Simulated scan of single mutants.
Amino acid sequence: MIETQVHSNPIDASRANSSDVAFTPAVKAIQTRKGSREAYAHVEENGGWRTEIDDRLAGFLAQTDSFYLATATADSQPYIQHRGGPKGFIKILDKHTSAFADYSGNRQYVTQGNLSENPKAYIFVMDYAHRRRVKLWGEARVVEDDPALTQSLMPRGYKARPEQAIVFTIAAWDTNCPQHIPQKFDAADVAAAIAARDARITELEAELAKLKKQAASAV
């Protein structure tokens, strides 16, 4: 884990629990009406959602090559943008902060525009192979004037042009159960597995041919 200056946690002091970042009074009212509030209140009493990047989350993000970043305009119009790169392209800066290089793309700048007037952001990471998902609430900011930071976030050897950096400060994070997540595998992982299988088949066929030759010569 890369250590740098620790940023303050962006959780609103008015929130009683870390999950209040998502469980607003309106949400809690529906939970009460539908019978799930008691269970979530129990979770809150036992510490609630995690608010720091621990080794478990750091390890998960280190294997992530794709996620979705959600932002919203000042008047709450949401927008979701996909972000991707080699595994490890999300860097951990400290126990509350992650960051990644923002590559040059179609130059719409919707995410950057949203963050300029509303720093609230959300990251959704899906691991289809292991049927896992992680949700992160927090705030994000675009850093345009720190080329050293941007360059430090670039994956080595990756063919993309970094334009700036996006720094995400975590307020709370949580995981979901695997229910309804279809199991899917990355094409590169499948190709590697097939190549390993084919190499083993070739090896076994060579051994079999050698044994047949030895058996024939012994007759």
Rank of each mutant, 00 (worst) to 15 (best):
I2A: 15
E3W: 12
T4Y: 12
N9R: 05
N9D: 11
P10T: 09
P10R: 06
P10W: 07
D12L: 15
S14R: 09
A16Y: 06
A16V: 13
A16W: 04
A16S: 12
A16G: 09
A16M: 02
S19N: 14
D20M: 11
V21P: 02
F23G: 03
F23K: 01
P25I: 06
A26D: 10
I30P: 03
Q31W: 08
T32D: 14
T32V: 12
E38D: 13
A39S: 05
Y40H: 11
Y40W: 10
E44Y: 05
E45T: 07
N46V: 03
G47C: 09
G48P: 02
W49L: 06
I53N: 06
I53T: 03
D54H: 01
L57Q: 00
L57S: 06
G59P: 00
G59D: 12
F60W: 00
L61E: 00
A62E: 12
Q63M: 10
F67L: 06
Y68P: 04
L69F: 15
L69R: 03
A70E: 07
A70M: 06
A72S: 10
A74R: 01
A74G: 12
Y79T: 11
I80E: 04
H82N: 12
H82L: 08
K87I: 10
G88F: 07
G88R: 01
F89W: 01
I92M: 04
D94C: 13
H96A: 06
H96Y: 14
T97L: 04
S98M: 15
A99I: 02
A99F: 10
F100M: 01
A101Y: 11
A101R: 00
Y103K: 11
Y109P: 02
Q112W: 02
E117H: 08
N118R: 05
P119D: 11
Y122M: 06
Y122F: 15
Y128I: 00
Y128L: 04
A129L: 06
H130W: 02
R131M: 12
R131T: 05
R132V: 00
R132E: 04
K135H: 12
L136W: 01
W137D: 11
W137Y: 14
V142H: 03
V143R: 00
V143I: 14
E144A: 08
D145C: 02
D146K: 09
D146V: 13
A148Q: 15
T150N: 12
M154H: 11
P155S: 09
P155C: 11
P155Q: 02
K159N: 15
E163D: 06
E163H: 07
A165F: 00
I166V: 13
V167Q: 15
V167Y: 05
A172D: 01
W173F: 12
D174C: 14
T175D: 04
C177L: 03
P182W: 02
Q183C: 07
Q183I: 02
F185H: 01
A188N: 01
D189K: 03
A193H: 07
I194W: 07
I194L: 07
A195F: 09
A196P: 10
R197N: 13
R197D: 13
R197K: 14
D198H: 08
A199M: 09
A199D: 13
I201T: 12
T202F: 11
E203L: 11
E203H: 14
E205M: 13
E207Q: 14
A209I: 10
K213P: 02
Q214N: 10
A215N: 08
A216Q: 08
A216L: 09
A218P: 04
V219R: 08
